[in-house]
């Protein structure tokens, strides 16, 4: 059962939406509710309360002129007062900074600096970023994130210069971005890879750059921005059997899609899906002899070849 909303929370969200209630506005109830993290039913109750609020002498012209008809919130006359936006509290500023950090807006970013100007005087932005961090190593990611979400919104094709962990190479490809999602703090975009004519998932922090092309694509029902997000792999996926000598410290979450079985000798055996041999070869080689691909042969070859090449490079320097 969802926790009961407190009076304090109701007051807070009502005061937050007041600036949106401009005279003559017609706002979908669901979107207004979503904008303050409430359900439509909760906000409908809030709006009913709000319609009874006002200033002395509490004549009809002194009340907040707002009502709901069907699924729409209608605003009549201007608010009796408090129509200007209220400053962000320290907790609200912290939430914005923490959220934007995940998308690559690091301390010192001009956007964060401007948001600080609408925060309350109690907000110490410098201290805030020393106490809360939701990402590190996000150099240039903010620009990539902004380009990708705008492109999803506009259904615009984007040229991305992308480092593929599967192949270990960086190349430019054109995508039609469909939706963006976060997994374990990393942002991904599910998109149609135009040259492959296949849906793939691209990690935003592996994009060197993303440039809108000015070309727009038609969305289909299946490719609309809403909908289930998920990791897409190519149709040519294989599965490798990987043997780990020591399962201590081995975490299933680090092997997405794998089926992991602990063995009696303290090791583990995993069936690991792969698309391209590069990524898995690196993961197995990184165990530095503590893991072995037992099948298929192409994956064993890939691991051996990678390690051999790295050895040669190491001694050629």
């Amino acid at each position: 059962m969802a926790p009961k909303t407190t009076a304090a929370e109701r007051t807070r969200r009502l005061l937050a939406i007041l600036p949106q209630l401009t005279p003559g506005a017609e706002i979908p109830l669901a979107s207004l509710a979503a904008s303050v993290g409430a359900t439509p039913a909760e906000l409908a109750a809030d709006i009913t309360t709000l319609s009874m609020c006002g200033v002395p002498p509490f004549d009809p012209y002194d009340l907040v002129d707002v009502f709901i008809d069907g699924d729409t919130v209608f605003v009549g006359m201007a608010l009796p007062s408090l129509s200007r936006p209220v400053r962000l509290t320290p907790a609200e500023a912290r939430a914005l900074v923490a959220a934007l950090q995940t998308a690559g807006f690091a301390p010192g970013d001009p956007l964060l600096a401007r948001l600080a100007t609408v925060a309350s005087a109690e907000t110490d932005t410098d201290a805030l970023v020393d106490r809360i961090r939701t990402a590190a190593g996000t150099d240039g990611l903010g620009d990539v994130y902004a380009t990708i979400v705008s492109a999803v919104d506009e259904a615009e094709s984007v040229d991305i210069t992308y480092f593929s962990a599967s192949s270990g190479t960086t190349r430019t490809r054109r995508i039609q971005p469909l939706r963006v999602f976060n997994s374990r703090g990393a942002w991904y975009v599910q998109a149609l890879d135009v040259s492959l004519a296949e849906e793939r998932t691209f990690r935003l922090d592996r994009m060197r750059e993303a440039i809108g092309t000015g070309e727009y694509f038609a969305r289909t029902a299946a490719s609309g921005p809403a909908g289930e997000a998920g990791f897409q792999m190519s149709a040519a996926d294989g599965r490798a059997t990987v043997r780990f000598d020591d399962a201590a410290g081995l975490e299933d979450r680090d092997w997405p899609g794998a089926t992991m079985t602990r063995t009696a000798d303290g090791g583990a055996e995993a069936q690991v899906p792969y698309a391209g041999t590069g990524w898995l070869a690196r993961r197995v080689a990184a165990a530095m002899g503590g893991a072995e691909v037992t099948a298929p042969a192409e994956m064993r070859d890939a691991v051996r070849t990678l390690a051999g090449e790295m050895l040669r490079e190491l001694y050629s320097e």
Binding site: Q20, V36, E92, A95, R179, P225, E228
Partner: peptide, 24 residues
């Protein structure tokens, strides 16, 4: 909840902005 309220407070500045539907 703080994030939702913060964005609601910026409502005027964010009016007519897209982006919400971009995220899954």
């Amino acid at each position: 909840s703080d994030l939702a309220i913060a964005v609601a407070k910026l409502g005027g500045a964010l009016r007519e902005a897209g982006g919400a539907a971009a995220s899954a």
